[in-house]
Amino acid sequence: MALKIPNSKTQEKMDLNAPVIPNGLKPRKRKSLQAQESRDAYLLITPLLLLTFVFIFFPMVSNFFYSLTDWRGFGGLNWIGLENFRTMIQDERFWQSIKNTLILLLFIPLGVFIPLCLAALLRGGLKGWKFFRAVIYLPQVLGYVILGMIYNLFLRSNGPLNSLFEMVGLQSWALDWLNRPLLALLSLGTVYGVFLRIGFGTIYFLAAMGGVDEHLYEAARVDGAGWWTRFWHITLPSIRFNIEFLVVMSVIENVARAFSFIYTFSRGGPGYSTHTLEYSLYTLGFTNGRIGYASAWSVILFFVCAVIAVMQIRLMRWNDG
């Protein structure tokens, strides 16, 4: 859960025309103060720039370089042009990873809709709503590695879920959730794409709904609008930005943050059935040691993420007016 983006209203207003230096000062003094401010600014951002350049920007660019080589992590490397990319598009695992990533994205609507409903219910202010809010959020604090282990334990063929099904006489529901290719992927989607979205989504929407004008609801109530009508015609339009935002964030979580969870939940298995594009980089680069080839995959993932990042930034700025 690294990414929580604030809503627009309090966000950075990029007005470059605001007065910087008090107007009463003499022109020369103003100019030198302005230069001083600019120098200080560059000094203050140096730590950030230095770190991100060495550990984020440079690695990203190196991926492009190594994607054209056959490097295996040690020893010499040969320049092989686009060979890696040619191998890649003929690699069944590549297409399977893409397909798996896309299937995971199909779970997003549900992963956004459920928190919306829960937030709307909690907003009703029933007795004990704060307790429910805390309980629903609780799993979120554990982090994906631990959650992956917990749900792995939970969904094993001889695990508690199946024991529960058998106890209530639903033997036929007790499936081998993690060891059948398609079923494992659907389990991953349900747990990671839906269940694990609920905690953050709910408190995020709840906070957003707190900003909706209460008069709108009162007016609607006077007009005799029911719960559902109010939800559909007032709540949803009012927090449209937040909904769009959570959709983009869910895309990021699925495409670019799932490694830790998959690592303990299913290890990408059985076979390649729960490998996303991101997870495959690990298998190729570290398990198989084919750094050059993995870099070619990284280049593709880079472009996918770049598109999402641009979408996200545009959404943030566009909403800023």
Partner: peptide, 29 residues
Amino acid sequence: RLRFRLRLPLFLTTLFLMIFPQMLLSLQI
């Protein structure tokens, strides 16, 4: 809160960098 010429481009670059998955960078890191 400070004004400098490259403020907007650098800030947007920072925002841009937030999204890339750890695995994408790890091999090179």
